[in-house]
Design a protein around this nucleic acid. Structure first.
Lengths: 222, 222
DNA sequence: CGAAACTTTCAACAAGCGTTGAAATTTAGA
DNA sequence: TCTAAATTTCAACGCTTGTTGAAAGTTTCG
């Protein structure tokens, strides 16, 4: 069988695993739940992927390259359309975030589950150190390099802390917990991705400028 | 036995449960692991707390009131020391965040585990809706009311989205994944709480001002 | 002391877990 | 069409899980 041919049951296992892992975490999901959701025998997951942990990793690998290259393309595009000074902070953050919004808006719920799963591992003291670097360090380092150019007075320490804040705001958005819906009494909707990113981008850009901007001094002291 | 008397084994169960739940999540921890960590028989957890889920809830209840009243006290204090205009955005965010830093700096690792556990549920699509409102809605509503006064031109929608970004940055800080340590090559340390909050506060305050500030218009449009 | 109440352990349960080898079924290619 | 390979199911394994009832131990207090 050609590697390119679609394998419907194999893909359905990945789809269901993606969704359930995102909702309940690695230990909160059993292979039997995944198999039942995919309409398939338990042993089939082992046949295609091996151990449970290998299935978990396969879920990540399926979309990793596609997502990373989309975000890298967005950075390259904004760099080419910018003046010789390079792109602004807003443009860089836009390039970092908008591809995620687009993925969430494709209509394929798989992308939403996948990004919620990224949020799960990024916030997990156990999985974070084991998975985030491998998946995203190359990409993030490029973006931080671009931000360093846009904020020439910034200390590296400040840049990384600002990225940490950006990553946190993004992570909670990707997790799709619906908390803001309740808290705002319906005025905000987690599923309104455009609103989420339209608020996140200027918020984060202003934060970067405040902490990494004009002054030579560091951030607020007590 | 008096309710006030310390119950060392009961407390050790809570301590170990707090730590393990924060690291591995609810499903990633077994009652036997907790019992072994506490040097106690499995059945003792059931005797003191009932079902596993009841133990999970007991971990939250132990520190909830203390933490919430500390943060509320900080808000009241900054409101009283402020002029008739009320406290500034920075002062309000400071009151929201600094008590967490102080808790993390007490030297009692239990507080760090507890706050990492809060991060876990806040980022979880399963636990978030079930636990966050009960624990924090009252407190958060008060802080947002204070921010609304400090930012009189803000639309409610914008305020809630900004709070969402604040909550995300805070959550990733509390999770203590150590990601920033690796990414920055040691220039930043997750465990350097003072640095984390000293960067978070001006970052977030600038974001609030940018999105909820002077202009009558909304946040960035495409 | 002695009995009642509380705490802790012991032993066991039924159910569910990940994993595996072999059998059955479907697919691919000559 | 026939055969070999790939896919899928079946059946079962050894282990671990949360929970429980009863026994043993400890504390409290009259």
């Amino acid at each position: 069988m050609s590697k390119l041919r679609s394998q419907p049951k194999r893909d359905r296992i990945l789809d269901v695993a993606e969704e359930l892992f995102a909702l309940h975490g690695y230990d909160g999901v059993t292979l039997r739940q995944i198999a039942k959701g995919a309409g398939v025998d338990v042993a089939l997951a082992s046949y295609h992927f091996g151990k449970k942990l290998d299935l978990f990793n396969a879920v990540f690998e399926r979309r990793a390259e596609l997502l990373n290259s989309a975000r890298l393309d967005a950075l390259r595009a904004c760099q080419q359309s910018a003046s010789s000074q390079g792109p602004s902070v807003e443009q860089i953050i836009e390039a970092f975030l908008r591809p995620l919004e687009l993925a969430q808006e494709t209509g394929d719920p798989g992308w939403q589950h996948y990004l919620a799963l990224i949020a799960y591992i990024n916030n997990s003291p156990y999985w974070g150190p084991r998975m985030m670097s491998k998946l995203f360090d190359e990409l993030v380092t490029e973006f931080i390099a671009a931000l360093r150019k846009a904020l020439p007075r910034a200390r590296d320490e400040d840049l990384y802390w600002c990225y940490h804040n950006l990553s946190g705001a993004l992570t909670l958005t990707l997790a799709q917990t619906g908390r803001i819906d309740k808290l705002s009494g319906g005025k905000c909707l987690s599923a309104d991705f455009e609103a989420a990113y339209n608020h996140m981008i200027p918020f984060v850009a202003a934060g970067f400028r405040q902490v990494c901007g004009k002054r030579a001094k560091g951030p607020a002291k007590r």
